[in-house]
Write a protein that binds this DNA or RNA. Structure first.
Lengths: 207, 207
DNA sequence: AAGCAATATGAACACTGTTCAATTTATTAT
DNA sequence: ATAATAAATTGAACAGTGTTCATATTGCTT
């Protein structure tokens, strides 16, 4: 078959990504393949390659949309907060972590793909997705800064990464990741424990 | 080729696992395959399948050895501590986390394989490896109990999982996992921050 | 020496992502 | 209108994957 011009570049992209996202609503990315996607959208496998370069790149585009959707929900969750306000900072931090957790629980396969995907040849991630990841860190830093404005940028960066690692680890653990899970439902309790204890000490420690 | 009786069952197992482990010293598990292992040990691929059942099971055996080696180092790191002794508990907790981090850094490919491996069909892990994982949690609980013996088993379990998630997340972050890493070397600082702050609050909170 | 069971394999199968020359079509130029 | 060009799409081939299973070789037992 040759040119059929059924979809322009933007339509094709939307077609592909939405079909993959629909698939991930019911099955994990492990059960997907380039060829299956091709069948799903009624195009040849090589068409997908010529558009996205390779399979990993296609999945990266899916991840970008997932991250974008998540970041929007995270922003909505913490709202717009004013300056120095420790109590509100604490509250927004909780909302942020809880929202992250619930997003992962609501879209487990989309969320897992973000962390399962590895680039061929261990290439670094392209900037357009790295920035989407950095964005969620920034939200965390905003909350921490509101909690204690006296902290240095280095301290804020350190704390944001420690907390992010913790929340992320807990989320991995609570989702079907059979490696460690024992009983369901204690994810929120763990997140609360992490934030309450860490922040209680961190917020009152000076330089 | 038929029967050659060059290696008995135990020797064959050792041959396979040691070759795979040697491979992982220089290359990630991603670059390995059933067929490559077969070439490495000078046997046919189907021989490996008939011995281990499937590829995932073979890798699981590798992970079991890695976990065993790590657990031994973790035990050596914390030594044998006596009963109620908050200060020693804190110190041992640090040693435990640091040892975990350094083991991962020293054997990154072995360590990554533990968490990258997924069973086919999302089967749960067999007990003989689940127990190896649970063991490291137990070590954590021992330290936490020493830190504050008044905590309930539920509280100890919760805290151990929170801390483990955090330490694990930080380790993932600090290793070549390009998703989040910015500068090398701040892994230990993050671990120190997590433990110091979380424990400072946790240890002095009652029931 | 014959039979049995353990060991080991080769060939086939159904998949995977990727490459690239060939084909069809739309757009542009003459 | 017709020819040339560029864009879109593909089929077939390639090298690789894990898995299956009938077949072959060997050692041990009777």
């Amino acid at each position: 078959m040759g040119r059929r011009n059924q979809h322009d570049s933007a339509q094709f992209d939307e077609l592909v990504l939405s079909k993959v996202e629909a698939f991930l609503c019911h099955q994990p990315a492990r059960d997907l393949s380039l060829r299956k996607i091709a069948t799903l959208i009624d195009y040849a496998p090589s068409t997908l390659v010529s558009v996205y370069g390779n399979y990993a790149n296609l999945l990266l585009r899916v991840n970008a949309r997932t991250l974008k959707a998540m970041n929007q929900q995270l922003m909505k969750a913490i709202g717009s907060g004013s300056g120095n306000n420790p109590e509100q900072g604490r509250e927004r931090l909780h909302k942020l972590a809880t929202c992250y957790f619930q997003f992962a629980k609501a879209h487990p396969h989309h969320w897992q793909l973000i962390f399962d995907l590895r680039m061929p040849g261990d290439e670094p991630l392209p900037h357009w997705i790295q920035s989407a990841i950095d964005f969620s860190f920034e939200l965390l830093i905003v909350c921490l800064k509101q909690l204690n404005p006296n902290k240095s940028p280095q301290e804020l960066q350190l704390a944001s990464r420690v907390l992010w690692s913790g929340v992320h680890g807990i989320t991995q653990l609570a989702l079907g990741d059979k490696l460690f899970l024992n009983q369901h439902g204690d994810g929120p309790a763990m997140i609360r424990s992490l934030l309450d204890n860490y922040v209680a000490s961190w917020a009152h420690t000076h330089h």
